[in-house]
Amino acid sequence: MFPRTREDIAAVRLRDPAARGAFEIWLTYSGMHAVWGYRFSHWLWTARAFFLARVVSQYVRFLTGVEIHPAAELGRRVIIDHGSGVVIGETAIVGDDVLIYHGVTLGGTSAEGGKRHPTLGSDVVVGAGAAILGNITVGSGSVVGAGAVVVEDAPEGSLLVGVPAVARPKRGTKAPKDCFNYTDPAIYI
Rank of each mutant, 00 (worst) to 15 (best):
M1N: 06
P3T: 10
P3V: 07
P3M: 06
R4E: 09
T5C: 13
E7P: 13
D8R: 08
R15K: 14
D16Y: 09
P17F: 13
P17S: 09
G21S: 07
F23A: 12
E24V: 09
Y29V: 04
M32C: 07
H33G: 08
H33E: 08
A34L: 05
V35W: 01
F40E: 10
H42P: 08
H42V: 14
W45S: 07
T46Y: 10
A47Y: 14
F50K: 13
F50N: 10
F51M: 09
L52K: 03
A53Q: 02
S57D: 13
S57V: 04
V60L: 01
R61Q: 15
R61K: 08
T64H: 01
T64S: 09
I68W: 02
H69R: 00
G75M: 05
R77G: 02
D81V: 07
D81S: 03
S84E: 14
I88R: 01
I88P: 01
I88V: 15
G89W: 04
V98T: 06
L99P: 00
I100T: 05
L106C: 11
L106N: 04
L106I: 12
L106K: 01
G114W: 08
G114A: 12
T119H: 13
G121D: 06
G121K: 03
D123P: 00
V124E: 04
V126D: 02
G127Q: 02
G129S: 05
G129Y: 01
A130G: 01
A130W: 00
A130S: 07
L133W: 09
I136C: 09
T137H: 05
T137R: 10
G139F: 06
G141Q: 05
S142K: 00
V144Q: 03
G145C: 08
V150Q: 00
V150R: 05
A154L: 02
A154I: 12
A154C: 15
P155A: 08
S158C: 11
S158M: 11
V161G: 08
V161Q: 09
V161Y: 01
V163M: 10
P164Q: 12
A165K: 03
A167Q: 07
R168C: 04
R168T: 03
G172M: 14
K174R: 13
P176L: 15
K177C: 15
K177F: 14
F180N: 00
T183A: 14
T183Q: 13
P185G: 05
A186S: 14
A186Y: 03
Y188P: 03
